[in-house]
Amino acid sequence: MSIIQVTNLKKNFGQNEVLQGIDLSINKSEVVVIMGPSGSGKSTLLRCLNFLEEPSAGTIEIGDYQVIAGGKMDRKRKKVIRELRKRTGFVFQSFNLFPHKTAIENVMEGPIAIHGTSKEEARKLAESQLIKVGLGDRCDHYPVQLSGGQQQRVAIARSLALNPLVMLYDEPTSALDPELVQEVLHVIKALALEGMTMIIVTHEMNFAKEVADRVVFMDNGLIVEQGTSEEIFGSPKEERTRKFLSMVE
């Protein structure tokens, strides 16, 4: 049962055709890892899914909401896009935590602002989310007092607090010191085991091998091939896939 359906997604930045027609279908509880060289369009694809980038053409369906590219940005369309965003949790490479709020206030922000949850309810919810990502003792710390790995885990908790249908990770560990990468991957792995539907753009090959139900290899704005991690890492069919894997491993 597909939760996300992307049809013929295209995105141009001026003359630059970053996405040249992507068709992708994600099922409930599936963990999909997207890999590819720099400039292949992986981050752009992810950012189109929650409309941080407006696609130039194509259709995006998440849950019951569907948005067709190129429509006039009127109030109704803005509302649909907002509803779409409420159902996707986005985790940024540079965390983007709110620096003027403590860890727990960051996690409380979503429920309070979006779901209208009361402060007390939101606080309880946020505390349980922070405990879940292993930061129960850091609730009242400001982002500036946390390490990169801790900040990213707070960012994950912040997205989880809105109970999304799918989590989107845009290179979640690329900005972290190597020794902090594992603590974040550990949290993502745990979420995958719980059945959260996830799309992860990452360069962490070993991690992909462990968690991915499906690996999608992109190059030049197109999906070159996709399959299980055994298929893609073990016996890639396309020359470009093999070339990429040999350079990275």
Binding site: L52, R82, R85, F90, G110, A113, I114
Partner: peptide, 20 residues
């Protein structure tokens, strides 16, 4: 990135201005 984080939660621009 702050605006992006706020908007990707589903906030309106007005909410992101006021809160973040």
């Amino acid at each position: 990135g702050q605006t992006e984080a706020a908007m990707s939660m589903g906030m309106t621009y007005a909410q992101s201005l006021k809160r973040i």
